[in-house]
Structure formats: structure tokens, C-alpha cells
Design a protein around this nucleic acid. Structure first.
Length: 216
DNA sequence: AAGGTAGGCAACCGCCACACG
DNA sequence: TCGTGTGGCGGTTGCCTACCT
């Protein structure tokens, strides 16, 4: 999106950063000309060896800066603009699962970058979640109070949230399924990241349990 | 109209992991 | 095995803009 590039090209040059070498690399906003050069060289040599790409493109930038620019802006199929409700829902669910693993979350959202998702989370969703959590804790407090009253009346109805399962089912659940915490969320601390198949499985399964998150 | 402030977002920084010689 | 270079990632910074007073 050239207009946005130009928009942020207005970004002031704070300081030409000092690096360990004597070469002074630019830290200013990327210009459309720089973008063009970077895209050109990357198209020819591929998105790797960023340091040499920076040199070949004649950019006064470090490799990391080039990579970041490519990943967040110039890469093909980058989807920019509003995050849809579906995407937002997915981000929330994935964040519940994975925490601040923005790259992993971005991997589930085609065309979205980790930086974009991180920014979106920090500026929109974190506040939203906080509000919702506050709201839901207020509701659960009311529920707890009501439960105390109910416990003295009809115990059967006092736990409407808990499904009745047989001991066999309960046993099978505890042995073969991932461990979920009280919120119905996978306890990530006990699982390695090496195999993320379960994430896909969870997301598919979760289509039926979206209600867990719809409270947000 | 002018100054102050908060939100949004691109880009940088620092750390870590991995590949390679 | 060790040292170095490079890429990837999450956290943070700082500029711009819109809104408020």
C-alpha cells in the first residue's frame, strides 16, 4: 500500500543510528524508493541473506531492517486493513492457547503479520479482554452468591454448568485428552511446542465450543 | 484556534537459537 | 567443541494523528 508507505515516510528522522561499525545506517522511515529497491533485489535473490540484499540493493540499512520491512510490508499476499470479526475471534482463541506467541498466531492468519497482530492485540484486544474479564468476574461473583442460596434449596440445580458424565467417560477424558484448565483452556505450561498438530485439532474442535470465548 | 493527550502503528532493540566453518 | 554470522521473535520506542479541553 504505497499511500501508507508515503504516509509513514513523513515519519521524522530521529537519528541516523550508531552501529558498532563506523558505517552509519539509516533508521528513518522507509521511502517508496527504498521499498522499490528492496522488492526488486528480493525478487531476484530470494528472501534470504538479508545483509547481502541490503548491500545489493544499495540500501543504507542493516539486514534486519530489510527483513522486517519485507516481512511486514512488501511480502506478497500481505493483507492490510481492518481485522475481521472472524480473525479477531481467532486471535483471541489462539492467544488463550499460545500466549504472546505472535509469530505462531500470525501463522494461523494468512496474510497477517506478527507485528500487526501484536499491535492489534496491544491496542485493541487487551483492553477488550480486560473489560470482558471484569464483566465476567462480576457475573461469576453474582453466580457464586446465587449458588450459596441454591445449595440450601435444590442441590441438583446448583451446578448447571457441569455436564454429567459417567466415571468411564471421566477416566477416558483425563487420560486421552489434553489438559485444560478451569476455563476450558489448554494448560500450555505442560506441553511442548514441538508438535502443534493439536492446535489445529483444537481449533477444529473448538468450532463447537466457541461459546467458551463468546463470553468475551 | 491552540495546546495537550491518548491511541495506533511502523520500526528498532536485544536476546536467543540455529547453521556452518 | 567452539566461535561467528544470520535469522527469528517478543518487547519497546517514538512519531503521527485524531480527539479533547
Amino acid at each position: 500500500m504505497a499511500s501508507e508507505t508515503e504516509g509513514f515516510a513523513k515519519r521524522k528522522v530521529k537519528a541516523a543510528g550508531s552501529s558498532k561499525s563506523n558505517v552509519t545506517l539509516s533508521k528513518a522511515a522507509w521511502t517508496s524508493e527504498e521499498d522499490r529497491k528492496l522488492a526488486e533485489v528480493t525478487a531476484i535473490h530470494g528472501a534470504k541473506r538479508w545483509k547481502s540484499i541490503a548491500v545489493k540493493a544499495g540500501l543504507n540499512r542493516c539486514g534486519k531492517s530489510c527483513r522486517l520491512r519485507w516481512m511486514n510490508y512488501l511480502r506478497p499476499n500481505i493483507k492490510r486493513g481492518n481485522i475481521s470479526d472472524e480473525e479477531e475471534d481467532l486471535i483471541i482463541r489462539l492467544h488463550k492457547l499460545l500466549g504472546n506467541r505472535w509469530a505462531l498466531i500470525a501463522g494461523r492468519l494468512p496474510g497477517r503479520t506478527d507485528n500487526e497482530i501484536k499491535n492489534y492485540w496491544n491496542s485493541h484486544l487487551s483492553k477488550k479482554i480486560k473489560q470482558m474479564e471484569k464483566h465476567s468476574s462480576e457475573r461469576s461473583t453474582r453466580y457464586e452468591n446465587q449458588k450459596v442460596v441454591d445449595d440450601h434449596k435444590i442441590p441438583e440445580e446448583a451446578e448447571p454448568m457441569r455436564e454429567k458424565i459417567s466415571p468411564e467417560e471421566a477416566n477416558e477424558e483425563s487420560s486421552s485428552k489434553p489438559k485444560f484448565d478451569a476455563d476450558g483452556v489448554f494448560n500450555f505450561s505442560e506441553e511442548g511446542l514441538s508438535n502443534l498438530e493439536w492446535v489445529s485439532q483444537f481449533l477444529e474442535l473448538d468450532e463447537t465450543t466457541t461459546g467458551l470465548f463468546s463470553q468475551y
